[in-house]
């Protein structure tokens, strides 16, 4: 395997030294491009109190290509599907090499605070979010309690 680019080393160092509040990202022991991520559910959101596990992988051509990020913990959210895939513009066509792991994770945390049912990935969830927001929020809280609060 090719040597780890300076950019990845620098980002990893900074993530360790000045971690982002509410977010932890730790590189895997055997693969420095694979990160174990934990995002805490933002305050005043239905995900509050939950700890959400994600995986983040930096592809070969990172930072020219976006990192691959996925929720491992089940989550009830209109922009995250059953497989944990995330619908977020900066992970797709709006990716810029100037963005970082840190900014991506912050954007994901912000997505938890502000779901966007008009650009859905999980259609059934988005639909309920639009027609009956209070019920959708109840479901989200229920899922957070069930899946994101154990250990």
């Amino acid at each position: 395997m090719a040597a780890l680019p300076r950019r990845i080393i620098k980002e990893t160092q900074r993530l360790m030294q000045e971690p982002v509040p509410g977010i932890s990202a730790v590189p895997d022991d055997s693969n420095a491009r694979y990160f174990h991520v934990i995002v805490t559910g933002p305050e005043d959101s239905p995900f509050e109190g939950g700890l959400f596990k994600l995986e983040l992988f930096l592809p070969e051509d990172y930072p020219m290509s976006a990192p691959k990020v996925r929720f491992i913990t089940k989550i009830y959210h209109p922009n995250i599907d059953r497989l944990g895939r995330i619908c977020l513009d900066i992970l797709k066509d709006k990716w810029s090499p100037a963005l970082q792991i840190r900014t991506v994770l912050l954007s994901i945390q912000a997505l938890l605070s502000a779901p966007n049912p008009d650009d859905p990935l999980a259609n059934d969830v988005a639909e309920l979010w639009k027609v009956n927001e209070s019920e959708a929020i109840r479901n989200a809280k229920e899922w957070t309690r069930k899946y994101a609060m154990d250990n």
Binding site: D61, M64, S65, K94, S96, P97, A98, L99, T103
Partner: peptide, 22 residues
């Protein structure tokens, strides 16, 4: 490197600056 990655994805006239939101 940016151009190489973009071109390999089939993007050509639509390649933009690397800065965020630019």
């Amino acid at each position: 490197m940016h151009f190489e990655v973009q071109i390999n994805q089939g993007i050509s006239t639509a390649i933009s600056c690397m800065a965020r939101d630019c």
